[in-house]
C-alpha cells in the first residue's frame, strides 16, 4: 500500500483524511473560536431579549407616549435609544422588532434549506433528463435578481403578513442551496457505500434519507446560516421601502421613520443599523467557522 509521511503519524490518519468526517462537533468547533463565541453570545442575548421583549420593555412597540412632549428625543436615561417622530420608545420598538426580524429570518432560512436540500438531492438522484430540467429551472431563477423576484411576488400577494414574508423570502432563497445540495449528493453518490446499499436492495428513498442526506445536511446548514443574515437585511429593506404593510414594529420601519432627517435624528438610523450589521456579521462569523470545519467544496451564497 502506498505509504505517505502522514501515514506514519497517528493511529489511523488515513481514515481522517480520506473518509468523510465521521462527526463534526458543531459546538466544539464554535466554542474553540473566540470570534464565534462572541457572535454566538450576541445572537443568544438578542434572541432572549426578543423572546422576553414584552417583559423587558416599559412601553408597547406602537405605543404613542406624548406626541408633543416626547417627540424625536435623542437617547436618554429614560429612553435609551430615544424616541421617534410620533413619540414611540425606540428601545421598545427595537426589541419587538427583533421578534419580527428574527422569526422571519429563521423561518425563511429553514424553508430555503429544506426546499434547497430536497430539490438538489432529488435532482442528483434523478434520471439525467429530469436532473437537467430541474437544474436549468434553478439557473433561470438565479438569473433574476432576488429583490425583483421578491417585489413581484409581494405585489401579487394579497396580504403580506410576517409569515407570508418569510415564505416569500424563503421561497426565493433556496436556488443556490439546491445547487450546493446537488453537488454534495453527487459527490456522496460516488462513494462506494451508496453503491453497496443499492446492491443490497435498498430502495431509493431509503438510500436518500439514510446514506445521502445526512452527509449533505452539514454544508447546506452552513449555507443556510449565511442566508439568515441576508434575510434579516433584506426584510429590513422591504419594511424600509414600505412595500409591505407595516407591522407594529420592525427594524426597517424604524430606519424609515428617521429617513427625513438622518443626521438630526441619527439614533433612528444608528441603532437599527448597528444591530443589522451586528446580526449579519455574527451569523457570517459562525457560518464561516462551521464551513471551514466541514470544508465543503463549494458554497453558493446569494
Amino acid at each position: 500500500m502506498a505509504e505517505t509521511p502522514a501515514s506514519t503519524l497517528a493511529i489511523e490518519p488515513t481514515a481522517t483524511t480520506r473518509a468523510l468526517p465521521a462527526r463534526v462537533s458543531w459546538w466544539g468547533t464554535l466554542a474553540s473560536d473566540p470570534g464565534s463565541r462572541v457572535a454566538l453570545g450576541f445572537l443568544a442575548l438578542l434572541g432572549l431579549a426578543a423572546l422576553f421583549a414584552p417583559w423587558l420593555t416599559t412601553y408597547g412597540p406602537a405605543q404613542v407616549l406624548d406626541p408633543v412632549g416626547l417627540q424625536s428625543l435623542p437617547p436618554s436615561a429614560s429612553h435609551w435609544f430615544g424616541t421617534d417622530p410620533v413619540s414611540r420608545d425606540v428601545f421598545s420598538r427595537m426589541l419587538h422588532g427583533a421578534r419580527v426580524s428574527l422569526r422571519i429570518a429563521v423561518l425563511a432560512a429553514a424553508l430555503s434549506a429544506t426546499v434547497g436540500l430536497a430539490w438538489g438531492t432529488i435532482a442528483a438522484l434523478s434520471r439525467p433528463l429530469i436532473d437537467q430540467v430541474m437544474m436549468r429551472t434553478v439557473d433561470a431563477l438565479l438569473s433574476i435578481p432576488r429583490l425583483l423576484l421578491v417585489l413581484t411576488i409581494i405585489a401579487l400577494w394579497p396580504q403580506v403578513t410576517p409569515t407570508a414574508l418569510a415564505v416569500v423570502l424563503g421561497g426565493t432563497g433556496w436556488f443556490g442551496i439546491s445547487r450546493l445540495a446537488r453537488t454534495e449528493a453527487l459527490a456522496i453518490r460516488q462513494r462506494e457505500f451508496t453503491a453497496a446499499a443499492t446492491a443490497l436492495g435498498v430502495s431509493t428513498p431509503v438510500l436518500l434519507l439514510r446514506h445521502i442526506l445526512p452527509h449533505a445536511v452539514g454544508p447546506v446548514l452552513v449555507a443556510s446560516t449565511i442566508a439568515v443574515g441576508q434575510v434579516v437585511v433584506m426584510e429590513a429593506g422591504l419594511y424600509f421601502l414600505g412595500v409591505v404593510p407595516d407591522v407594529p414594529a420592525s427594524w426597517g420601519s424604524i430606519i424609515q421613520d428617521g429617513r427625513n432627517a438622518p443626521l438630526t435624528w441619527w439614533w433612528l438610523t444608528l441603532f437599527p443599523g448597528v444591530f443589522l450589521v451586528a446580526v449579519s456579521l455574527s451569523v457570517n462569523t459562525i457560518a464561516g467557522r462551521l464551513r471551514s470545519a466541514i470544508n465543503p467544496r463549494q458554497l453558493h451564497g446569494r
Binding site: M1, A2, E3, T4, P5, S7, T8
Partner: peptide, 23 residues
C-alpha cells in the same frame, strides 16, 4: 522495502531534510 507505516518514505524525505513539524 516495507509496508505502510514501516518508515521507508519518511526515511527518504529525511535524507533531503524535507520533514515539516511536528516531525
Amino acid at each position: 522495502v516495507g509496508e505502510s507505516g514501516s518508515g521507508k518514505s519518511v526515511t527518504a524525505l529525511s535524507l533531503l531534510r524535507l520533514i515539516d513539524p511536528p516531525g
